[in-house]
Design a protein around this nucleic acid. Structure first.
Lengths: 112, 112
DNA sequence: ACATACTATAGTACATTGGACCATAGTAAT
DNA sequence: ATTACTATGGTCCAATGTACTATAGTATGT
Protein backbone atom coordinates (compact mmCIF):
# COMPACT_ATOMS: atom_id res chain seq x y z
CA UNK A 1 0.00 0.00 0.00
CA UNK A 2 1.38 3.37 -0.97
CA UNK A 3 0.76 6.45 1.06
CA UNK A 4 -2.61 7.01 -0.60
CA UNK A 5 -2.79 10.73 -0.08
CA UNK A 6 -6.55 11.13 0.12
CA UNK A 7 -7.04 11.49 -3.59
CA UNK A 8 -10.25 13.42 -3.59
CA UNK A 9 -10.13 15.49 -6.73
CA UNK A 10 -11.09 19.10 -6.84
CA UNK A 11 -14.17 18.03 -8.71
CA UNK A 12 -15.29 15.69 -5.98
CA UNK A 13 -14.65 18.28 -3.33
CA UNK A 14 -16.51 20.88 -5.32
CA UNK A 15 -19.40 18.49 -5.73
CA UNK A 16 -19.74 17.80 -2.06
CA UNK A 17 -19.37 21.44 -1.15
CA UNK A 18 -21.95 22.41 -3.70
CA UNK A 19 -24.36 19.88 -2.29
CA UNK A 20 -23.84 21.18 1.21
CA UNK A 21 -24.16 24.79 0.17
CA UNK A 22 -27.40 24.08 -1.58
CA UNK A 23 -28.71 22.31 1.42
CA UNK A 24 -27.62 24.92 3.93
CA UNK A 25 -30.06 27.59 4.99
CA UNK A 26 -33.76 26.95 5.12
CA UNK A 27 -34.31 27.87 1.52
CA UNK A 28 -34.35 24.36 0.24
CA UNK A 29 -36.44 21.64 1.76
CA UNK A 30 -34.59 18.61 3.09
CA UNK A 31 -35.67 16.58 0.15
CA UNK A 32 -35.28 19.03 -2.67
CA UNK A 33 -31.64 19.80 -3.08
CA UNK A 34 -31.13 21.61 -6.29
CA UNK A 35 -29.65 19.54 -9.02
CA UNK A 36 -25.91 19.72 -9.43
CA UNK A 37 -24.98 20.68 -12.96
CA UNK A 38 -21.87 21.57 -14.89
CA UNK A 39 -22.51 25.16 -14.07
CA UNK A 40 -22.13 24.57 -10.39
CA UNK A 41 -18.90 22.74 -10.89
CA UNK A 42 -17.37 25.24 -13.26
CA UNK A 43 -14.71 24.10 -15.66
CA UNK A 44 -13.24 21.44 -13.44
CA UNK A 45 -11.73 18.43 -15.02
CA UNK A 46 -13.58 15.16 -14.99
CA UNK A 47 -12.97 12.74 -12.12
CA UNK A 48 -9.52 11.32 -12.70
CA UNK A 49 -9.35 7.62 -13.34
CA UNK A 50 -6.17 5.64 -13.42
CA UNK A 51 -5.86 3.74 -16.73
CA UNK A 52 -5.20 0.36 -15.03
CA UNK A 53 -2.91 -2.05 -16.78
CA UNK A 54 -3.49 -5.78 -16.76
CA UNK A 55 -1.01 -6.08 -13.94
CA UNK A 56 -2.90 -3.47 -11.97
CA UNK A 57 -6.10 -5.37 -12.38
CA UNK A 58 -4.53 -8.60 -11.29
CA UNK A 59 -3.19 -6.84 -8.23
CA UNK A 60 -6.61 -5.47 -7.42
CA UNK A 61 -8.12 -8.93 -7.62
CA UNK A 62 -5.37 -10.42 -5.51
CA UNK A 63 -5.88 -7.77 -2.87
CA UNK A 64 -9.46 -8.94 -2.74
CA UNK A 65 -8.19 -12.50 -2.32
CA UNK A 66 -10.43 -13.88 -4.99
CA UNK A 67 -10.10 -16.27 -7.88
CA UNK A 68 -10.82 -14.85 -11.31
CA UNK A 69 -14.12 -16.65 -11.29
CA UNK A 70 -15.34 -15.22 -8.01
CA UNK A 71 -14.06 -11.79 -8.89
CA UNK A 72 -15.82 -11.97 -12.23
CA UNK A 73 -19.10 -12.76 -10.51
CA UNK A 74 -18.81 -9.67 -8.36
CA UNK A 75 -18.06 -7.51 -11.36
CA UNK A 76 -20.90 -9.18 -13.23
CA UNK A 77 -18.63 -10.15 -16.08
CA UNK A 78 -17.31 -13.46 -17.36
CA UNK A 79 -14.21 -15.29 -16.22
CA UNK A 80 -12.78 -15.20 -19.70
CA UNK A 81 -13.07 -11.46 -19.72
CA UNK A 82 -11.23 -11.06 -16.44
CA UNK A 83 -8.52 -13.33 -17.77
CA UNK A 84 -8.23 -11.21 -20.88
CA UNK A 85 -8.11 -8.02 -18.85
CA UNK A 86 -5.28 -9.28 -16.70
CA UNK A 87 -3.33 -10.43 -19.73
CA UNK A 88 -3.89 -7.10 -21.42
CA UNK A 89 -5.82 -8.69 -24.24
CA UNK A 90 -8.74 -6.40 -23.53
CA UNK A 91 -9.00 -3.03 -21.85
CA UNK A 92 -11.74 -2.10 -19.40
CA UNK A 93 -13.95 0.74 -20.53
CA UNK A 94 -16.39 3.20 -19.06
CA UNK A 95 -18.12 1.94 -15.99
CA UNK A 96 -15.85 -1.08 -15.65
CA UNK A 97 -12.88 1.21 -15.24
CA UNK A 98 -14.69 3.20 -12.58
CA UNK A 99 -15.63 0.07 -10.71
CA UNK A 100 -12.08 -1.24 -10.71
CA UNK A 101 -10.77 2.09 -9.52
CA UNK A 102 -13.27 2.14 -6.71
CA UNK A 103 -12.23 -1.32 -5.61
CA UNK A 104 -8.61 -0.34 -5.73
CA UNK A 105 -9.15 2.77 -3.66
CA UNK A 106 -11.70 1.51 -1.19
CA UNK A 107 -11.43 -2.25 -1.28
CA UNK A 108 -13.87 -4.87 -2.41
CA UNK A 109 -16.25 -4.15 0.45
CA UNK A 110 -17.08 -0.89 -1.27
CA UNK A 111 -19.26 -2.75 -3.73
CA UNK A 112 -20.74 -5.45 -1.53
CA UNK B 1 -36.04 5.45 2.01
CA UNK B 2 -37.60 2.03 2.29
CA UNK B 3 -36.81 -0.28 5.14
CA UNK B 4 -33.69 -1.55 3.41
CA UNK B 5 -33.41 -4.84 5.21
CA UNK B 6 -29.64 -5.20 5.15
CA UNK B 7 -29.54 -6.89 1.79
CA UNK B 8 -26.30 -8.73 2.23
CA UNK B 9 -26.67 -11.85 0.15
CA UNK B 10 -25.67 -15.25 1.40
CA UNK B 11 -22.80 -15.08 -1.00
CA UNK B 12 -21.49 -11.88 0.44
CA UNK B 13 -21.80 -13.17 3.95
CA UNK B 14 -20.09 -16.38 3.00
CA UNK B 15 -17.32 -14.42 1.40
CA UNK B 16 -16.63 -12.33 4.43
CA UNK B 17 -16.82 -15.29 6.75
CA UNK B 18 -14.50 -17.26 4.57
CA UNK B 19 -12.01 -14.42 4.60
CA UNK B 20 -12.14 -14.24 8.35
CA UNK B 21 -11.86 -17.95 8.81
CA UNK B 22 -8.82 -18.05 6.63
CA UNK B 23 -7.27 -15.25 8.53
CA UNK B 24 -8.05 -16.62 11.96
CA UNK B 25 -5.47 -18.68 13.77
CA UNK B 26 -1.79 -18.00 13.30
CA UNK B 27 -1.53 -20.34 10.37
CA UNK B 28 -1.69 -17.64 7.75
CA UNK B 29 0.42 -14.52 7.88
CA UNK B 30 -1.41 -11.22 8.01
CA UNK B 31 -0.67 -10.57 4.42
CA UNK B 32 -1.24 -13.95 2.89
CA UNK B 33 -4.87 -14.79 3.12
CA UNK B 34 -5.62 -17.76 1.05
CA UNK B 35 -7.43 -17.01 -2.14
CA UNK B 36 -11.18 -17.27 -2.07
CA UNK B 37 -12.43 -19.57 -4.79
CA UNK B 38 -15.69 -21.06 -5.90
CA UNK B 39 -14.91 -24.06 -3.76
CA UNK B 40 -14.94 -22.00 -0.61
CA UNK B 41 -18.20 -20.44 -1.48
CA UNK B 42 -19.95 -23.62 -2.47
CA UNK B 43 -22.83 -23.53 -4.90
CA UNK B 44 -24.18 -20.17 -3.85
CA UNK B 45 -25.88 -18.04 -6.39
CA UNK B 46 -24.09 -15.10 -7.86
CA UNK B 47 -24.46 -11.72 -6.20
CA UNK B 48 -27.98 -10.58 -6.97
CA UNK B 49 -28.28 -7.50 -9.11
CA UNK B 50 -31.49 -5.68 -9.77
CA UNK B 51 -32.08 -5.34 -13.51
CA UNK B 52 -32.69 -1.55 -13.36
CA UNK B 53 -35.16 -0.06 -15.78
CA UNK B 54 -34.65 3.31 -17.37
CA UNK B 55 -36.89 4.82 -14.72
CA UNK B 56 -34.77 3.24 -12.01
CA UNK B 57 -31.65 4.73 -13.46
CA UNK B 58 -33.20 8.15 -13.68
CA UNK B 59 -34.22 7.85 -10.06
CA UNK B 60 -30.72 6.89 -9.06
CA UNK B 61 -29.31 9.91 -10.82
CA UNK B 62 -31.89 12.18 -9.29
CA UNK B 63 -31.10 10.86 -5.83
CA UNK B 64 -27.54 11.93 -6.51
CA UNK B 65 -28.85 15.35 -7.51
CA UNK B 66 -26.87 15.47 -10.69
CA UNK B 67 -27.51 16.45 -14.25
CA UNK B 68 -27.08 13.74 -16.84
CA UNK B 69 -23.82 15.32 -17.87
CA UNK B 70 -22.28 15.34 -14.41
CA UNK B 71 -23.57 11.87 -13.69
CA UNK B 72 -22.12 10.62 -16.95
CA UNK B 73 -18.73 12.00 -16.01
CA UNK B 74 -18.76 10.07 -12.77
CA UNK B 75 -19.75 6.87 -14.54
CA UNK B 76 -17.10 7.57 -17.17
CA UNK B 77 -19.62 7.30 -19.97
CA UNK B 78 -21.12 9.82 -22.36
CA UNK B 79 -24.14 12.03 -21.81
CA UNK B 80 -25.88 10.53 -24.78
CA UNK B 81 -25.52 7.12 -23.27
CA UNK B 82 -27.04 8.15 -19.97
CA UNK B 83 -29.91 9.67 -21.87
CA UNK B 84 -30.42 6.43 -23.78
CA UNK B 85 -30.28 4.40 -20.59
CA UNK B 86 -32.93 6.51 -18.92
CA UNK B 87 -35.16 6.31 -21.97
CA UNK B 88 -34.68 2.58 -22.15
CA UNK B 89 -33.04 2.78 -25.56
CA UNK B 90 -30.02 0.92 -24.21
CA UNK B 91 -29.53 -1.36 -21.25
CA UNK B 92 -26.53 -1.24 -18.94
CA UNK B 93 -24.30 -4.27 -19.04
CA UNK B 94 -21.84 -6.04 -16.78
CA UNK B 95 -19.87 -3.64 -14.69
CA UNK B 96 -22.15 -0.71 -15.46
CA UNK B 97 -25.03 -2.56 -13.86
CA UNK B 98 -22.97 -3.28 -10.78
CA UNK B 99 -21.92 0.33 -10.49
CA UNK B 100 -25.47 1.59 -10.72
CA UNK B 101 -26.61 -0.93 -8.13
CA UNK B 102 -23.87 0.17 -5.79
CA UNK B 103 -24.86 3.80 -6.17
CA UNK B 104 -28.46 2.93 -5.55
CA UNK B 105 -27.68 0.97 -2.41
CA UNK B 106 -24.93 3.10 -0.92
CA UNK B 107 -25.30 6.48 -2.56
CA UNK B 108 -23.01 8.33 -4.90
CA UNK B 109 -20.37 8.81 -2.21
CA UNK B 110 -19.63 5.12 -2.49
CA UNK B 111 -17.75 5.74 -5.69
CA UNK B 112 -16.11 9.08 -4.96
C1' DA C 1 -35.28 41.86 -23.45
C1' DC C 2 -31.54 39.69 -25.53
C1' DA C 3 -27.67 36.74 -25.90
C1' DT C 4 -25.32 33.04 -24.20
C1' DA C 5 -24.61 28.52 -22.19
C1' DC C 6 -26.21 24.74 -20.32
C1' DT C 7 -29.69 20.49 -20.02
C1' DA C 8 -32.12 16.90 -22.12
C1' DT C 9 -33.78 14.44 -25.93
C1' DA C 10 -33.28 12.18 -30.29
C1' DG C 11 -31.33 9.89 -34.19
C1' DT C 12 -27.76 7.76 -37.13
C1' DA C 13 -23.49 5.32 -38.07
C1' DC C 14 -19.70 3.13 -36.28
C1' DA C 15 -15.88 1.16 -33.18
C1' DT C 16 -15.13 -1.55 -29.49
C1' DT C 17 -16.25 -4.08 -25.62
C1' DG C 18 -17.44 -8.00 -23.55
C1' DG C 19 -19.85 -12.59 -24.09
C1' DA C 20 -20.31 -17.36 -26.05
C1' DC C 21 -17.92 -20.97 -27.15
C1' DC C 22 -14.24 -23.97 -27.69
C1' DA C 23 -9.95 -26.27 -26.02
C1' DT C 24 -5.73 -26.95 -23.16
C1' DA C 25 -2.74 -27.40 -19.01
C1' DG C 26 -2.08 -27.02 -14.17
C1' DT C 27 -3.59 -27.40 -9.44
C1' DA C 28 -6.44 -28.84 -5.46
C1' DA C 29 -9.78 -31.82 -3.21
C1' DT C 30 -11.95 -36.54 -2.33
C1' DA D 1 -6.76 -41.59 -9.77
C1' DT D 2 -10.64 -39.14 -10.72
C1' DT D 3 -13.01 -35.29 -10.22
C1' DA D 4 -13.59 -30.26 -10.17
C1' DC D 5 -11.77 -26.16 -10.13
C1' DT D 6 -8.37 -22.28 -11.95
C1' DA D 7 -6.24 -19.91 -15.55
C1' DT D 8 -4.98 -19.24 -20.21
C1' DG D 9 -5.72 -19.03 -25.17
C1' DG D 10 -8.18 -18.53 -29.21
C1' DT D 11 -12.12 -17.17 -32.55
C1' DC D 12 -16.52 -15.20 -33.71
C1' DC D 13 -20.06 -11.86 -33.14
C1' DA D 14 -23.97 -9.45 -30.80
C1' DA D 15 -24.49 -5.65 -28.04
C1' DT D 16 -22.72 -1.88 -25.79
C1' DG D 17 -21.24 2.54 -25.80
C1' DT D 18 -19.15 6.53 -28.65
C1' DA D 19 -19.20 10.25 -31.98
C1' DC D 20 -21.68 13.22 -34.25
C1' DT D 21 -25.44 16.13 -35.28
C1' DA D 22 -29.65 18.67 -34.41
C1' DT D 23 -33.60 20.47 -31.74
C1' DA D 24 -36.16 22.57 -27.90
C1' DG D 25 -36.29 24.09 -23.31
C1' DT D 26 -34.39 26.40 -19.34
C1' DA D 27 -31.20 29.12 -16.62
C1' DT D 28 -27.82 32.82 -16.27
C1' DG D 29 -25.98 37.36 -17.02
C1' DT D 30 -25.91 41.92 -19.18
Amino acid sequence: MTTEKKKMSRLTKALLETAEDLHAGGLLKENTYKKITKRHLGEEEKPDLAPLSGEDIRTIREQAHMSQSVFADYLNVTVGYVSKLERGAKRPSGAALVLLNVIRRKGIEAIL
